[in-house]
Design a protein around this nucleic acid. Sequence first.
DNA 1: TGTACATCAGTGAACGCGCGTTCACTGATGTAC
DNA 2: TGTACATCAGTGAACGCGCGTTCACTGATGTAC
Lengths: 203, 203
Amino acid sequence: MEKENSTLKSLKATEKEMRKNLILQATLTLFGEKQISEVSMRDIAKEAGISAALIYRHFKDRDELFIEAFILKSQEMITTFEHTILEKEIILVEDIGKEFVQYLVHNPLFFKMMTYFMLDHTLVEDHLERFNTTIRELLAIFDTGFKQSGLKQNVRLHSHAFFSALNGIMITFHHYPGRSEKEVEDHIERLTSLISSLFSKID
Amino acid sequence: MEKENSTLKSLKATEKEMRKNLILQATLTLFGEKQISEVSMRDIAKEAGISAALIYRHFKDRDELFIEAFILKSQEMITTFEHTILEKEIILVEDIGKEFVQYLVHNPLFFKMMTYFMLDHTLVEDHLERFNTTIRELLAIFDTGFKQSGLKQNVRLHSHAFFSALNGIMITFHHYPGRSEKEVEDHIERLTSLISSLFSKID
DNA sequence: TGTACATCAGTGAACGCGCGTTCACTGATGTAC
DNA sequence: TGTACATCAGTGAACGCGCGTTCACTGATGTAC
């Protein structure tokens, strides 16, 4: 009895989790299609094939839903990026730069969300903390690169500088006016390799 | 007659220009107080002490008003920054970095607007062009620094990289969580000087 | 096996609001004769 | 100097819309006896 009961309960819980995930996936799909601030609860409901009211059985409000979608996407990023970097024998600062920017270029959705949350003042304390935990995990990977290149001092400071410089390249040039997608990517690659080479000549 | 007529006409034109400027100033004031996307036409009218309908006698729509406000602020930035840099005898890359970031830190309004327009996809072609003209003027100043430091090749590429790296520092860390304003400024300064020193060791 | 009750996913409609923009109008000032 | 007309800054109210969120309700499924 007890056992069956708890199995049923956990089944139900899993189902609930899956429905919640369905909403999150619909949200992410729409984030890819339009400006994040323009995605409405009705849009999401329609995309998920449910009524808007149902979303509120899973998320407190729009803010919470958006943050959870971002956290989900961030964890995916960390996992992929960590895997790409840590499988290498020698972790070069140059590789980290290249791979990170490549990830951003090929996952514009993650990039879009990251900048959205970086520039939005209105994030509540609690949510901001979750966002920053993710960023810190990423910075830890950058640290590894600098340590392996022999840097002894100010490792985290270098990671901050390198990380933010790469962000800056993306933000400043991803909408380079009047250029094709290919040209933009090439330019971003050139800038990334210039910055990366500066950072790897440190020791 | 002819002369008086034209004087009167130009007086009227000046008056009109002043009223237009009043609206622009009200817009900028509100940009400083809240998120740019949250500033409404009614807010602006209230701040300027006029009715919302009057704004439409001076600007085609909200988009045009916002762009003109940004152009105004950008020209102010260019003028100030150019003056600060070009009065120096030797123009060091390090100084450009320091002064530019200092300008952004002390003029959060300009910084806010710049990032708003960089990340907003919805800018019309024509407006985007005006925005980029401003950025190019700024890059020209960066170029001067690199040329004076003896850089012969890829000057504009270096300016792009340096400029975007500084932007990245600002964007990534201006909301460093749980730190005081002073601590944030110090951190940004440290990062700026690290990046600047990398860029000035080039030749 | 049957019945009364509890739980809860799910919904359509509505609430209350603020938005960008337009409209029809007023009234002050200038112009022509 | 007086009068008829044109111009135009300026306005309050309204239009039409979409938003986040809540409410009262349905109906399916599980539970207890």
